[in-house]
């Protein structure tokens, strides 16, 4: 438990990016999410010390945002969009498929802590409806059967790095727009893969 030196150094670097300490709260919570798969009370205490506000103030902010999870999540966070464009293009069937495969209901995590399933609001992939995100890496134009093979692949191969382009190529369909350039970087863990947080990685 508690944050090791590297993590604290990173935290302090991030704090320096902002005119006021408290602005770093969001980024620090992403790091906490990546560390434990949820916002642990322990991290709340550490962060409260780092930005100089009370624990409950940290908790208050953390619990406001849906990407900071209050319960431990699995290795892969499967977020299927259910907002209007996906809804009218039958995202329900994709949701059911994923539910079936994982045996999970909304916001549930399996015993093996492999999958967490959630039906989410618009992820900005409406042109490629129905769409899903795996650890915030987007896959567009999904079919129920592709959704299942996607989960199957994750289950069998359990990749550390999740990369939108690779997933899209294997399991995706219609896209919101031409992605053109292949990205080699992706996400590790259940916080968005982003350089500043060291939650991204470049695939070899």
């Amino acid at each position: 438990m508690t944050w090791d030196k590297d993590l604290l150094d990173k935290a302090n670097k991030i704090i320096e990016l902002y005119p006021q300490k408290r602005s770093a709260l969001g980024p620090l919570l992403h790091i906490a999410q990546n560390k434990d798969g949820y916002i642990s009370d322990d991290s709340v205490e550490v962060i409260s010390g780092l930005v100089g506000i009370t624990e409950v103030q940290v908790k208050s902010v953390a619990s406001f945002y849906s990407m900071y999870k209050q319960e431990p999540t699995g290795k892969y966070l499967i977020s299927v969009c259910k907002s209007i464009s996906c809804e009218i293009l039958d995202s329900k069937s994709v949701i059911d498929a994923v539910k079936d495969f994982t045996g999970l209901d909304n916001n549930e995590t399996d015993e093996e802590e492999l999958f967490t399933f959630e039906a989410v609001e618009c992820i900005g992939a409406c042109g490629g409806a129905p769409a899903v995100q795996v650890n915030y890496e987007t896959v567009e134009g999904l079919t129920p059967s592709n959704a299942i093979s996607l989960c199957q692949m994750l289950k069998d191969e359990q990749p550390e790095l999740v990369n939108a382009d690779i997933l899209q190529e294997k399991f995706g369909g219609v896209k919101s727009f031409d992605w053109a350039i292949k990205d080699t970087s992706g996400t590790i863990g259940t916080a968005p893969g982003f350089q500043t947080f060291d939650t991204d990685e470049v695939s070899k």
């Binding site: 624990e55 409950v56 208050s60 619990s63 406001f64």
Partner: peptide
Amino acid sequence: PLIEFIQRGNKTQVNTFPN
């Protein structure tokens, strides 16, 4: 400030930090 809003929207509640 030891008492605060937790969650958001219709789930919003007032509470303290566990410890």
